[in-house]
Nucleic acid binder design. Sequence first.
DNA 1: ACAAAATGCTACATCGATTTAGCCGGACGT
DNA 2: ACGTCCGGCTAAATCGATGTAGCATTTTGT
Lengths: 343, 343
Amino acid sequence: MKGISIKDIAKQAGVSPTTVSFVLNGKAKEKRISEQVAKKIQKIATRLKYKPNQLARGLRTGKTKTIGLIVEDIANNFFATLAKVVEDEADKHGYKVLYGSTEDNTEKAKGLLEVLKYRQVDGYIITPTKNLDKEIELLQSAAKPIVLMDRYFPHVESHYVVLNNYQGAYDATTHLAEKGYQKIAIVTIASDQTQMKERLEGFTAALKDNKLPFNKSQVKRLPFDLDRESFINEIKKFLLSVKDLDAVFFATNYLGIAGIETIRGLGWEIGKDIGLIGFDDHDLFRLHSPSITCVSQPIAAIGKSIVDILMKELNHPTPAPATPYQQVRLEPELIIRDSSSRD
Amino acid sequence: MKGISIKDIAKQAGVSPTTVSFVLNGKAKEKRISEQVAKKIQKIATRLKYKPNQLARGLRTGKTKTIGLIVEDIANNFFATLAKVVEDEADKHGYKVLYGSTEDNTEKAKGLLEVLKYRQVDGYIITPTKNLDKEIELLQSAAKPIVLMDRYFPHVESHYVVLNNYQGAYDATTHLAEKGYQKIAIVTIASDQTQMKERLEGFTAALKDNKLPFNKSQVKRLPFDLDRESFINEIKKFLLSVKDLDAVFFATNYLGIAGIETIRGLGWEIGKDIGLIGFDDHDLFRLHSPSITCVSQPIAAIGKSIVDILMKELNHPTPAPATPYQQVRLEPELIIRDSSSRD
DNA sequence: ACAAAATGCTACATCGATTTAGCCGGACGT
DNA sequence: ACGTCCGGCTAAATCGATGTAGCATTTTGT
């Protein structure tokens, strides 16, 4: 029940495995194999439904036609949707995807990189955790194609595709200001990574530009690894602690969801008592009552861009990067709904 | 920058690669390698951080320590959450996961199986599409461990882990009956696969047992591959067509979501004007106003059970199934919320 | 004391595909 | 008539790990 090998074809065609290999790799011309022989081999190969053994090929060539996808959490809507796009795009180029979730834990991320490395994936799509910069650089110096996503390391030259997080937060906050909310808070994740930093910066910049008050009591930074209940408790304490609070911006999708629960638990009316904006779009945000304004990421475009860059890199012959590092920053869309309106 | 190979260790230790292989595979005793040499090799291996090249090993042994996960749609909350569980559980056994989405399309599924086959995955977790039975049996006769999930083929002996879909639908429908709804409809997917059949059967059985009217005008079966808008249009037409309709059961998570949108578009009040129950739990169902009653699947238990069975199969020496086929049917939980209450 | 058994290790073939180096025979040139 | 070139193909090495068969050497048994 083992598959057809190149030898089987060779035997049937009465030629050597070498010839078969040349023909099936499209090197018939280059290697001066006669048309007759080439055609014969092709015919036999299709008849036997020959599929090259990827392991053997990988062992010899070092190419596995596999890419490693490291996300924060594959169960998270954003990453799952992205995984789907990546799957589809990679498939177009004949690549399969091995995935892994970091839980934003550097050790887990390192473990994943380790595993993917000795499984010889050809390229990496990485949602880095903090302190993963050394590993990234190590991989780069090994000439492994890497595209970072969602966040990046400012001091590391690399390809990346991220959202213009600053703009997203800025737009959201400005929108709240324009809607007349005066004391706006942010609930974010305690992380120094670019995506979170930018969201916070966009928030504060917008407050400033709109001449709204700002001091650090308006900022709550929560650890990533809390469970839902703890998120709710923390958010509750925070919301109650901000004086005259009338709007809040949640900097991630799960914070937004927890935030909604919290606010409803407090009996406040979203929109009226408190303006609310979330991050990433979600069925919940669309269908909640009131519906939730959010900063939406162009996930399809992100996924396509990532795979494009990776494929360009993979198909490039030289060990050095094909081009200067590509650093793509896509624009978010502010989807305005009812949670940011006082009507 | 290539990795450390067994030869490097052999050279450093002044022994043959064979010896190194024996030691590192724990066969030192069995193969009568002296303790000194064994320890020396171990030490060198850890010092050099040796990781066996999985391709080479796979080529030789036929084992890749990789499992193929074929789901309907990795972007769907249910499958994404399951993928996370599978990832975690597989990792405990040193396995990685290659995934693929079928979109419930048999051709895509066949393609995925094909690719996974010549990538030599050791085992398969498959959410089968219709007409995939032949391929499944083919794989089985090749002694490949397979666990079906979410649905199965009644006429094919295989491992599977599914929900007791009949019970889920039965409980949901009975609950609606007990709450006093009289004319209950179901919106489901036009599929003859077990999960959908059972949901429909559970629905009709519950109507009968509760002495509620039933005729086929109360059943709407929609094709899987509609886009959201079409789902909404179809559901709308359907809901308006059922006379005296006062409750509806949506047999999948995405139908439930589309259903909610539809009903709201119609201006009906969920719970009061129309009872509603969905399938699978979802943040949206929990936080919607009114909150949505649903049939919840024990995803963690499902994932664990799947991987357990697969691992037992994979660790079994014989080519025949380790045990009689394991056919696990887990119980759903009806999460009662406000959409099924007229209060 | 000499064969048999045990000990400790290694040479080599193998998995399947790729790739380098080069063989063989005919055409061509002078 | 002899060297050169070229067309058409193949032998063999290679990737890294595994595992069978077996070679020395020492120990045991009688």
